[in-house]
Computed example of a mutant assay.
Amino acid sequence: MTLESVPSATLDPIGPSPSGRDIPPSRRSRAATAWTVVGVAIFLLLSAAVLAATAIANLRFDAAVVAHRAAVADAAAAGESAAAVEADAGASAEIAAAALAAPDPLVDAAAKSALATAAGELDTLMAAAPETEFAEPNRPLSRPVWFADLDAASELLNGETRRLTDLAADADAYAADLTVADETVTVSGDAYIEAIAPVAAAVEGANGSARNVERIEFRNSVEQLASSAWGYDAAARIDAYVAAAAALQSTHAAEEAEKAGPLYDRRVAVETYARSIAGGVLLEFDWAPIVIGYGDNGSAGGTATWDTWEGGLSTITLSNSIAEQWGDPVMAALVTHEVGHAITSKCYDLVGEYADDNEPWAVAWAIGMGHTDPNGNGEWLYGRPSDELIERSKGCR
């Protein structure tokens, strides 16, 4: 009997492989590792992308913050500058309005029109003023974390920056225009004040009968205007000039009323003559029926004061009979004698020892002026002065 070999039996794994074939364990391990590596790589790439986007967003946010802070500072500076210019312009507008309130007859018409035009343009510009006070705008209180939030915050800041930049530019342009308009008002204001002097001279000339004190105050007001330029006190100085002009006109009207009547033209002729020889000394006149006991029955009388204040001034009082007999050389001599008293204030050094006892000087002055009739020049009443005094008086004109 022979023994035959029997094939050995093997055990198959439980269940079939997906492909119908068996997969070794080592291959399954390598596949799992590969997928893990791929997943990790994708995760790292995504993380890197997020981190990069966040870093870039942070840089944009930082730049937006810096630009916004600069815009806030620039806007505040522009607003403050414009507000300061506006305050100065507002003061100029107020001064111009007050100056333009002066009555037309007391100022130059062309200069007033030019100032009114400049002031009107300034008022119009100020009425259309842009915003010059900039409240700090809303902005993120803390730095966002997510890059999308960072970009949204950056856009908000950039929008506010653009708004503030535009406001600052408007404020700067407004301030520049306002400065030009204000300077135009100043130039026109200076011309307006300068043009008052010739008008004032005509006003004074038209009020020749005004009293001395009011005339001096009027002249002083004109000098104060001429000696300074347009500025914060220009309106006050113009107001003082207007008030002085009103007083001048008032006393002129009162004096004109006092000498009105049938003798008016003769009184005016007497006063005109006296002023023509007074050497610039201010004269005012009072008329009365009787002066120092003279004035009736063909007689005539006069008195005069003298004062060195403000270059010299005097009040001369004359009897009505002088006006009635005007044209008689005796009357002219008498008036010249009184002017001789008045002009003492101008020639105090020449008058010398006769300043207190002034009659000899007045007689000498009348004689020196060519009035030799003793009945008019005062010689018959006060005696003849020395030839030396007569010659000395000729130096006072």
Rank of each mutant, 00 (worst) to 15 (best):
G20S: 07
T2C: 11
P16E: 10
P24N: 02
S26F: 08
L11H: 14
I23F: 05
V38Q: 04
L3N: 06
T33M: 00
R21T: 13
S17F: 13
T36H: 02
L3H: 12
L11S: 15
A41G: 09
L44E: 07
R28I: 01
V50Q: 11
T10A: 13
P13K: 05
T33N: 00
T10I: 15
R28D: 01
G15P: 03
A31T: 04
V50A: 12
S17M: 03
I42C: 09
M1W: 12
G15D: 11
P25N: 07
D22N: 08
R27I: 01
P16F: 15
A9H: 15
R21E: 14
I14W: 12
S19G: 12
S8D: 08
T2W: 14
L3M: 08
V37G: 02
T10Q: 05
T33F: 01
S5P: 11
I23R: 05
S26Q: 03
P25H: 00
D12L: 15
D22K: 13
S8R: 08
I14C: 15
A34M: 02
S5C: 12
V40S: 06
S8W: 09
G39R: 03
S5G: 14
V38A: 10
S19E: 04
S19Q: 08
P7G: 06
P18C: 04
P25W: 07
S5A: 12
V50M: 09
R21V: 10
I14A: 15
R27M: 02
A9P: 13
P18F: 02
R28N: 03
A49Y: 10
S47E: 11
